[in-house]
């Protein structure tokens, strides 16, 4: 289990902003084995800073990252897989060599690195490109190599900063599948993204960060529970005044009346609507993650 507790980070200011910039103002969350954690937040909210601190690339001013109950140390961290926000590969190095090299840096033997690189190249569809220099690859293929670099040592934890950005829908699916596989194997996965539908679809739990604070964490269902669910009824040609006394709003579109309400006896409302006219639609609408997100950061 990966626990991030109360991270704080202030960046030193330049001459124009001598007071500096608080990037993290107490970030806490937990990721369990086999859990996929979606990290969302506006630009500049502090996602990248948090991930860099987790990866030891930045030092927090205070707070702690612990892994399996102990403070996360250098040796444990080598078993993590990381994809930084700004991608980085040696442009002139060949695909296979590059993946093998990072595998070795992360503690694999030469043989293990070779085997793992070969496997990944096959799984990620890079076989034809394996002897090409990275600079000769398309952006999508470079992303795959970057992912391979993060996965080569069969990491115990995956930390991916906006791994889906810039990918076409097919590449998104390939990546999503690769992540889900790892996750099912018991690896905690953290990734940040602005594609909220994707986060909603893939993630077991979500953290919403705003201005360096975690404003909401939990499963998508939990977050929905916090928000009140809306009841939505569409009635055609209802008798006038049918919704008098009910909370919520009625929108009239042609001969359709759309009632959006909450905190009511839904069965009672349905009976009234059926008596008043022809019910075309009746349902509880769950807010999308986008709505939850907007609400949370507002």
């Amino acid at each position: 289990m990966l626990e991030i507790s109360d991270l704080r980070k202030r960046f030193a200011g330049g001459p124009d902003a001598p007071e500096g910039k608080v990037a993290l103002d107490g970030i806490s969350f937990t990721v369990r084995p086999g859990e996929m954690f979606g990290f969302v937040g506006a630009n500049g909210a502090g996602k990248t800073t948090t991930m860099r601190i987790v990866m030891g690339v930045l030092q927090a001013d205070s707070g702690e990252v612990s892994w399996q109950g102990r403070p996360l140390g250098y040796d444990d961290r080598r078993r993590f897989g990381y994809m930084p926000e700004e991608r980085g590969l040696y442009q002139k190095m060949k695909v296979t060599e590059q993946i093998e090299y990072f595998g070795r840096l992360q503690g694999l033997s030469a043989q293990a690195a070779k085997k793992s690189a070969t496997d990944l190249i096959e799984r990620l569809g890079l076989v034809e490109r394996r002897n090409d220099a990275v600079q000769a690859l398309s952006l999508g293929n470079q992303q795959r190599v970057q992912l391979a670099v993060a996965l080569v040592h069969d990491p115990a934890v995956l930390v991916l900063d906006e791994p889906f950005s810039g990918l076409d829908p097919i590449a998104v699916d390939t990546l999503a599948t690769a992540l889900q596989e790892r996750c099912r194997g018991g690896v905690p996965v953290i990734f940040s993204s602005h594609q909220l539908e994707l986060v909603e679809r893939l993630c077991d739990s979500v953290g919403i960060v705003s201005a360096g604070r975690m404003v909401a964490t939990g499963t998508v269902a939990d977050l929905r529970g916090v928000e009140s669910n809306t009841l939505r009824i569409v009635v055609r040609d209802p008798a006038p005044g049918w919704s008098d006394g009910l909370p919520g709003t009625v929108t009239v579109r042609g001969d359709r009346h759309i009632l959006q309400t909450a905190d009511v006896d839904d069965q009672e409302v349905l009976r009234r609507a059926m008596k008043a006219g022809h019910v075309e639609y009746f349902g509880v609408e769950q807010p999308t993650l986008t709505e939850i997100f907007k609400e949370a950061v507002a």
Binding site: R52, M55, G56, Y74, R77, Y82, P84, G88, L105, V149
Partner: peptide, 17 residues
């Protein structure tokens, strides 16, 4: 500069000192 500019260093320093 190659490593710094291309941010490879971020991956490198997550497994190297």
């Amino acid at each position: 500069v190659e490593e710094k500019g291309s941010r490879i260093v971020e991956i490198l320093l997550s497994s190297l000192r």
